[in-house]
Design a protein around this nucleic acid. Structure first.
Lengths: 360, 360
DNA sequence: TTGTACGCGTTATCAT
DNA sequence: ATGATAACGCGTACAA
């Protein structure tokens, strides 16, 4: 018996060395028990486990020595959660989303989840994003990073999945059939403009990007503020670039070309703000002496801007925490009609790019 | 018969609406054929398929109408490749690696692969990175982004996997048991320093980060250059920060504090260079008038630096292409002893942060 | 306390 | 040309 077992051990070890993969049956053979026993022991089966003491030891050491690793595919096939989290983001290259993914993946990894990336860079990629993340893979949940309300095809596909779908960094006034977590853009813009206003600025420009969701809300909030304070909004002070990563030089030039140029400018994102900083340097306009600049997001690079960027900080960890809860929490929310829309508060971070206007 | 089939259809549709997942058996039932037939048809079985014409149509339409999606877990369980690519990167937040991941994921997604993220942020996370990406998931290949030679635990685990392992952005002089693709850091540093030298700079400082691989090679290359040109290397002109994302203000201050401060500085990465730009602004040193700055990497943000950063550009697409080839190519390389180490050439990009020294 | 048997959804090898 | 049937590795009811 002892002999036979040793033989089994060797056989199994040889197999391991050769083709790598050890199964439960291998462990069972090595330990001289049935495969089901191995399963029970290794899974620390819940309450109804009539545990054995000596067998347990034997199996555990056998498993350890053989380097047994459970096969996630077999598990998933049996109905276990895949422990895969799908993420759909427009562009990881955008530092803001890189930070978001970072925080997100860390939080989920702590819960045992692996994060699979599903870009949706261009509109043509929509289908591809779905194919890769949804059809092909079987994610337990899918997190949308940023507002994809415009991507009808994507949303359509998402509606047909059985994975839980959660939207992060969706606007406060969003209206989608799945739960979302977003930031109070009104409050953020308000605090930024209030800051500039109290510094003495009255001509305040806005450089945004054509987009829906967050970015649209920020523009709306800007308009509302100006309307409320000045009784009118000068559309000439509003410039839009294609997206966050577009050069903002043209927009800045346009703002400087109006009759009485703005003494300050709020941008829809930090990346745009950094672009403005760059363009300002090229145009020889000194920040903040000639122009105050306030961004939005507080990305990593904001603090090493030239000069350090005054901006509105996202409550990233809170947003991610809420997202994790929505994905993994018990509130199954089979009916997505009453999907919750959580809105969190951003906070102003004053640095070096804003100051009183020169006339003061 | 027609009646029964219609009934089947309804049953199946009801099931689809209820719990979501359509299997091959469902399709088979709906089409009135055997499940194995469905498998053959849907997989466009290679040559030895005695194709049927009418049945094929029937099955195909049934599959389409029911919205059949193959179950990747079942496939993988049968031995099919998981089509999962594991990536291990120190910090996605670093814009350089964000760009790399972006390019990588795009390239692999085009080949049908899904990318799963496996940070290795801190050393404590090492084990976690492996657990998540390797043990738990079953990746067909694992790509290391950046040099992990120092992470012994990680490398040890990697050695025991049967997935193909490939290292990207490993140094040119690296010596690891798996294939790598890197950049010729010597050539990159040489072109940068040659550029500064020809501009008239003789006192050239270096700000790097403590690290192995790429970053070490760049520092060595700097030392070699200075030694060759000046017959000596002034160690006082070399400053190291903790990592790419650390503030470089202290390092810059230290360089300005030496007897005759450098008129130019080369940095190990663009992020460090941007930090220098920031600090320079704080210290009121004008770039490039008072100090020329040259970075390394050519990240997205380099061109919107203040001023736009002269830097050494990575051949990202070539590197990624080579990586894809190593992972998916036919050169199975069972024996990893003769692992190829591809080295590609970077190229200098001259922008606004470098100019002749003030004395000229 | 432990072993047997079945099924998850596929693919592949038999028969028919 | 197509239908049974056996795996793949695991979890679990059921039998012993």
């Amino acid at each position: 018996m002892a002999k036979r077992q040793a033989d089994d051990d060797e056989t199994v070890l040889a197999k391991a060395a050769k083709s790598g993969r050890i199964t439960m049956s291998d462990v069972a053979a090595a330990a001289g028990v049935a495969q089901s026993t191995v399963s029970r022991i290794l899974n620390d089966a819940a309450v109804p486990i009539p545990v054995s003491d000596e067998t347990r030891k034997r199996v555990q050491t056998a498993a350890r020595e053989l380097g047994y690793r459970p096969n996630p595919f077999a598990r998933a096939l049996r109905g276990a959660p895949s422990m895969l989290l799908g993420t759909i983001v427009r562009d990881i290259t955008d530092p803001f989303f890189a930070g978001a993914i970072d925080a997100l993946s860390l939080a989920f990894k702590a819960r045992g989840y692996s994060v699979v990336l599903g870009h949706a860079r261009s509109l043509e990629d929509e289908a591809l994003a779905l194919t890769a993340v949804l059809e092909s893979r079987q994610c337990d949940a899918i997190v949308l990073l940023g507002d994809f309300t415009a991507e009808h095809r994507l949303l359509e596909d998402l509606a047909h999945t059985n994975a839980r779908v959660v939207g992060l960094w969706y606007g406060a006034r969003t209206n989608v059939p799945f739960p979302t977590v977003g930031v109070d853009n009104d409050a953020g813009v308000l605090s930024a403009l209030e800051h500039l206003w109290s510094l003495g600025h009255r001509r305040i420009g806005y450089i945004g990007a054509v987009s829906h969701g967050d970015l649209q809300e920020r523009l709306d909030a800007y308009r509302n503020f100006m309307q409320a304070r000045l009784g009118t909004v000068d559309e000439g002070l509003i410039q839009l670039v294609a997206d966050s990563l577009s050069p903002a030089g043209g927009a800045l030039a346009a703002l400087r070309a109006v009759e009485t140029p703005p003494t300050a400018v709020l941008t829809a994102t930090d990346m745009i703000a950094l672009g403005v900083l760059h363009a300002a340097n090229e145009f020889d306009v000194s920040i903040p002496r000639d122009l105050s600049v306030v961004g939005f997001d507080d990305i990593l690079m904001a603090k090493i801007g030239v000069p350090a960027l005054t901006t509105v900080r996202m409550p990233i960890s809170e947003i991610v925490a809420a997202g994790v809860d929505m994905c993994l929490g018990p509130n199954a929310s089979a009916n997505q009609t009453d999907a919750p829309h959580i809105v969190l508060e951003p906070s102003l971070v004053v640095r070096k790019s804003s100051a009183p206007p020169a006339s003061h």
